[in-house]
Each structure stands twice: as C-alpha cells, then as structure tokens.
C-alpha cells in the first residue's frame, strides 16, 4: 500500500503529510517547554530575596554552545538546499557537520554537568560553609561514621548567601580546603536536589540535551542507512531532510531562549 501525500501537498492542508505531522509535534513541544519556562519564572519570582543564584554557570561555555548550535542550524539548512538542487555530495558533507556540532554540544554540556557534580557545598558544625570542587576524599572518609577528611578546591564563607550571587563578588580567592568528616553537618553536591535553581536547570537543559540526542539519531540515520532513499525517491528523501531540519531548528530555537534565561540572568 502506498502512503499518500509523502511528496505532493495534500489539497486541504496545503503541505505534505510529514510536514503537517512535524508541526503538530512541534506545537506539543512548544507547550512542553513553555510549561517549563513558566515554572522557571514562577520559581524565580517566588525565591527568597538573595537566594536565587547568579553567575553559577560559565557564560563562555554557554556562548560556545550557542555558536555551535547556530552553526548546526546553518549546516542543516545547507544540507536541505543541497538536496533541493541535487548535490548529494554536499548534502553528506553538511549533514556530517551538523552531527559533529551536535556531538560537540553534548560534549560541552557533559563537561558542565560533571563540573556541577563534583562541586560540593558543605555545612559545618560551627555554622560556616565550605564550598568548592572535590579534590579528594581520604580513603577512610565516611560521613555516617564521621571518619576521614574531604578536600575541596574552594573557600569557606560565614554567610550562605555569599555562595548565591557570584557575579557581584569580584576576585573570589579559591584555595584547597580540607574538612574533617566529624565537622560536617551536611554535605551535598550541586545536583538537581541542591536547590530549585539547579532542579530547573538540570530539567530544562537535560530535556533539551535529550532532544539534541534524539535529533542526532534521526540525522545520523538519514546521513547513514537512510540515505539509500535518495537513489529511489529523491523528492521524498529531501522532504525527510526538511522535516528533520524543522525539528533541529526548533531545538536550536529553544536553546536561544535557554541560554539568556539560565546563563545571563
């Protein structure tokens, strides 16, 4: 059985079926990410004064990822345009570039996640806070038994609010800080459980990264085994590239909103 309107536009919608399908899907995606952005706004305006983090993310890495995704959007468009004019060699090149950009994005994102994973805030018994990246835990370190020590590359502060607004503090001096397990009241890394900012950060960027991964699999398929269709039905193949490009552009557009909201505000 032949699937209708894979090439020709359907008379009542004016577009081929896959395009209508992807736009319906993207409409649901807008609602999904829209809900998360709304959650972010509500969490932020509901935060206690001085308790919403600023400057916790590396703007340079965020900027690099923005540039990478912008380049990938361009290469996606060029891949589609190459198909339109029948230049399959150029299509393969541009789609490979898109895949490389996606991998680079995920690599940088993984590095950022790892950086948060090894970042600890330790509340000490004397009311001060040790904060920094994990250097080492002694072999006998056990928080429950209160044995051993943990060393961070960071600092000790008296007021927890000093750990929240890093942007307004100039020349923060970091050093190696060793803390005894016996002195620790609470120890937690900067995972999603640490506070609402990190919870929404990991949720939004994690969901976005999953979209990048999903898009990469589709683009990889069309670049690899799926490209056989070019020989039998080039117009339908070109339509598939357009549909995958629409999804990819949507994912890039989400990042254009995520970047200023999470990194710059």
């Amino acid at each position: 059985m032949e699937i209708p309107y894979t090439i020709q536009a359907r008379p009542d919608t004016g577009v081929y079926n896959a395009k209508l399908g992807i736009w319906l899907f993207l409409a649901s995606e807008v609602m999904l990410f829209g809900g998360l952005f709304s959650s972010y706004v509500l969490l932020r305006v509901g935060a206690e004064p001085g308790m919403w983090p600023h400057g916790w993310l590396d703007v340079r890495l965020g900027t690099a990822n923005t540039i990478i995704l912008a380049l990938s959007a361009i290469t996606t468009l060029l891949a589609w345009a190459a198909c339109k004019v029948g230049q399959f060699g150029k299509f393969k090149f541009f789609h490979a570039c898109t895949l490389l950009c996606a991998l680079a994005f995920l690599g940088i994102k993984s590095y950022e996640y790892h950086d948060k994973w090894i970042h600890y805030e330790i509340k000490l018994n004397d009311g001060t806070f040790a904060d920094g990246h994990l250097v080492e835990k002694s072999e006998d370190f056990d928080l429950a038994k209160k044995t051993g020590t943990v060393t961070l590359h960071g600092r000790i502060v008296n007021d927890e609010t000093l750990l929240y607004d890093l942007r307004s503090q100039k020349d923060i001096k970091l050093d190696e800080v060793t803390v005894k397990a016996a002195d620790i009241k609470q120890m937690e890394n900067y995972g999603p459980w640490h506070n609402t900012y990190l919870a929404i950060y990991f949720t939004m960027t994690g969901l976005h990264a999953l979209h990048i991964l999903g898009g990469s699999i589709v683009i990889g398929f069309l670049w690899g085994p799926g490209r056989k269709m070019w020989k039998t039905n080039p117009t339908q193949f070109t339509n598939r590239i357009e549909v995958s490009g629409l999804f990819w552009h949507f994912v890039d557009l989400v990042w254009i909103f995520l970047f200023p909201v999470l990194y710059l505000t």
Binding site: L77, G245, H249, L253, I256
Partner: peptide
C-alpha cells in the same frame, strides 16, 4: 511553513 521560513525566524532570533 517551510524550513526556509523557520530558518528566517531562527536567524532573526539569533
């Protein structure tokens, strides 16, 4: 809306 139109939105946003 084609990829061309969506790309234009993307370029404007960027």
């Amino acid at each position: 809306m084609s990829l061309k139109a969506f790309h234009l939105i993307f370029v404007t946003s960027l």
